[in-house]
Amino acid sequence: MASGDAALVRKIVLTGSRRSADKLIRRHYDDIYRFVAHQMRDKDDALDVTQDVFAAAIRALPSFDVRRASFRTWLYRIAANKVVDWYRFRARSASLSIDEVEIDPADARDEYEELVDRSWSEDRARRAIELLLELEPRVQAVVRLRVFAGSSFAEIAQATQQGEAAAKAQYYRAVKTIRACIVREERS
């Protein structure tokens, strides 16, 4: 599918083909929507952000370079950034309550389950997301791509334009930091 994506991207960039753009969007829409929706409480907001992701992707297609990342990886990077932007905008326009952030612990990946496992309450899971939002955007993107998109560290490294070891280190450091903060808060 990756080579098919690259061919569609070339056709869109060279000819402006709406049909190719529609095909490319349909191919990835459900995955991107799920990725965004897992990080947001309101499904309408998730739909809006998903629309923003594809609008930004279509506008940025001329800058897409298949040698640097697969289209899927590139698209998830845009999605992660749009979710972060959405939360930043919300934080600026109104204070963010933990009730406005939702995570389903059952959707967590193996490593993240150590942080948000079945024994954790929904409040702890929400606090984990709240703490995630306090991390720098690049680290947030690494954690989001790993947890919500199920991306490999190689894919994350491509999407965030850094080495695989750096992506792993950022991920595990972020999980450790979030865990320590929650444990510290629960003890006090």
Score class of each variant (00 low, 15 high):
Ser93Asn: 11
Leu115Glu: 08
Glu130Thr: 03
Asp99Ala: 02
Asp123Cys: 04
Asp104Ser: 09
Phe148Glu: 10
Ala149Trp: 06
Asp44Thr: 14
Glu114Met: 05
Asp107Cys: 04
Ala108Phe: 10
Arg88Trp: 03
Asp110Ser: 12
Phe153Lys: 05
Glu130Tyr: 14
Val175Pro: 11
Ala94Asp: 01
Ser152Leu: 07
Val139Lys: 00
Lys168Val: 08
Gly16Ile: 14
Ile98Cys: 04
Ala149Gly: 14
Ala169Asn: 10
Lys43Gly: 07
Tyr112Ala: 14
Arg184Ala: 15
Ser3Ile: 06
Ser152Tyr: 06
Glu155Tyr: 09
Arg34Ser: 05
Glu111Tyr: 12
Arg19His: 09
Ser70Leu: 05
Leu24Tyr: 03
Ala55Glu: 08
Ala37Val: 04
Arg27His: 12
Asp65His: 01
Arg184Asp: 15
Ser151Asp: 08
Arg173Leu: 10
Ala91Tyr: 02
Arg68Ile: 04
Asp42Trp: 05
Ala154Cys: 06
Arg26Pro: 01
Lys82Asn: 03
Ala79Asp: 01
Ser17Gln: 03
Asp65Met: 01
Arg88Thr: 06
Leu132Asn: 11
Arg10Ser: 10
Leu61Phe: 00
Arg68Tyr: 00
Pro62Met: 13
Ile129Lys: 14
Glu102Met: 14
Asp48Arg: 07
Arg126Ile: 15
Ala157Ser: 06
Ala56Tyr: 00
Gly16Ala: 07
Glu164Thr: 13
Arg144Gln: 10
Cys181Gly: 12
Val36Trp: 07
Arg41Lys: 13
Tyr171Asp: 12
Phe89Gln: 06
Ala180Thr: 14
Arg144Asp: 10
Tyr172Val: 00
Ser97Met: 06
Glu136Arg: 10
Asp30Lys: 13
Pro137Phe: 08
Val84Arg: 04
Ser93Pro: 03
Gln39Ser: 08
Ser17Phe: 11
Lys176Met: 02
Glu100Ile: 07
Ala7Leu: 07
Ala57Val: 01
Thr177Ile: 09
Glu164Gln: 15
Cys181Ile: 15
Asp48Glu: 08
Arg18Lys: 13
Ile156Glu: 11
Ala167Val: 00
Thr160Cys: 10
Ala80Met: 04
Val147Arg: 12
Val9Glu: 14
Phe54Ile: 05
Ala6Met: 09
Asp42Leu: 09
Tyr76Ser: 03
Glu114Arg: 07
Ser152Asn: 04
Arg179Asn: 12
Pro62Tyr: 13
Ser20Ala: 15
Ile12Pro: 00
Val84Trp: 03
